[in-house]
Simulated scan of single mutants.
Amino acid sequence: MAEEGTYRKIIHIDMDAFYASVEQMDNPELLGKPIAVGGSENRGVVAAASYEARKFGVRSALSGAQAKRNCPDLIFVSPRFDRYKEISQQIHKIFYDYTDLVEPLSLDEAYLDVTQNKKGNPSASLLAQEIRLRIFNEVGITASAGISINKFVAKIASDYHKPNGQKTVNPHEVIPFLEELPIRKFYGVGKVTTEKMYQLGIFTGADLKTKSEEFLEKHFGKSGKFYYNVVRGVHNSEVKSHRIAKSVAAEHTFDVNLSSEIFMLEQLEKIAASLEKRILKHKVSGKTVTLKIKYSDFTTQTRSKTLPYFIADKHLIVETVKDLLYQERMKDSVRLLGISLSNLNTEQKKAVVVQLKFDF
């Protein structure tokens, strides 16, 4: 951990059920009701669920059919990403009233470094409270916050008193907080890693702390050093006001499954046109083209090709995707197609903002 007096003051703001909250705000008839944004009872995948729906086990990435079985009264709402982006921009304007060190993770969450802030307020907790109140009063939806000495702890803390709450982990509380934390709640530890840790007798942060750096690197590779450090409160990643985009992508889910490569190619040309617009917006080019295919059984396959030169033109993207499409036969009908361009030339370019994000 940092020496006394040199701690950063980091706030992680996370909007509460963002897409669903925007829909309920814009349509008061949906207030208090279980709603799912995206999908339908016959097909598609839920993008977000209101807290009323979450009580029934409805969550993002769940199939619409399963969501409806879990919650028979579930109301499906079509997503409006332009609207969510508009609301997100309003929220970010509020953030910049407090600090220029804002790192967006997505439309609905961001890190703020308020160690030195525009309000001259030494209390990060009071600043977080004020920011949340302004979001509610000026935008109309609620947010939760986590406040601590680094991004890792702040991220975990923001989930503690959801919805519409906040948790501060003061410098002297960081180690006890992490030691008591179930390993499954460590940010970055997914289901597979959690199971592996359980097999190694690691159930809490305290258990993790007993393991040597060598032991963790042996079992978890490069991530081992990360786990060794964060459980000791060491996470020196700064809040970066700009993040370099690693890829640009576009995809589309179809109302009717496609089984003909000819029809797929027609759709891929449209997707490539959308991708080209995003590429031009970010002023990037790339060498690696990836075709994403999601089949009717929800399994996903990717096929990639890396070119010897940078491209940004939709016609070149389509030609490359065509090769990938005919690379092998489809195993089933297709419900989603996507194209991404990676291996970008951003190392030589200005960073691109990702949209879609001690008195504590």
Rank of each mutant, 00 (worst) to 15 (best):
E195Y: 12
G338V: 10
S333D: 15
G32P: 05
E347C: 05
R43F: 13
F186K: 07
A145Q: 03
T6E: 15
K350M: 15
H219G: 03
T306L: 06
Q116G: 08
A249M: 12
H235T: 04
L275S: 04
I135H: 03
P28Q: 04
A2C: 04
D113W: 14
T6L: 14
I11G: 02
D313M: 09
G338P: 10
F136M: 13
E195I: 13
Q267Y: 13
A157Q: 04
L74K: 01
I75D: 04
K294N: 08
L336H: 01
E251H: 11
K294I: 12
V139M: 03
V22Q: 05
E52Y: 11
E213P: 09
A53I: 04
Y309R: 10
A53D: 07
H235D: 15
N229T: 05
V46K: 00
L31D: 01
L101A: 10
F358N: 11
K225R: 13
I311A: 01
D14A: 00
L105D: 05
L208H: 07
R59K: 12
R54K: 13
Y84T: 02
V239D: 05
V58P: 06
D255G: 14
N345Y: 14
E109S: 07
L291S: 03
L30D: 02
Y326L: 11
R69E: 09
R69I: 09
D159H: 13
S304A: 14
E29Q: 14
H92R: 14
N257W: 00
R184F: 15
A53S: 10
G233V: 07
Q301N: 14
V37K: 02
A47E: 02
F76D: 05
N121L: 14
I13M: 10
T210W: 00
V102R: 04
K349Q: 15
Q355T: 12
E86I: 00
L268V: 01
I131E: 04
L62C: 02
V321Y: 10
T193Q: 02
E3I: 14
A157H: 03
E261Y: 14
E23C: 10
S223G: 01
I262P: 01
F358T: 12
K294H: 10
L126K: 08
S88G: 09
I149F: 13
S60W: 03
G205V: 01
L101G: 01
Y309T: 13
K209H: 15
L133C: 03
I131L: 08
E217N: 14
P34M: 05
I91T: 06
K287S: 12
E29A: 14
A249W: 00
E130N: 13
A17L: 03
Q90T: 11
L216T: 07
A250M: 06
H219V: 03
L268E: 06
A245P: 05
Y326Q: 07
M25D: 07
E23A: 10
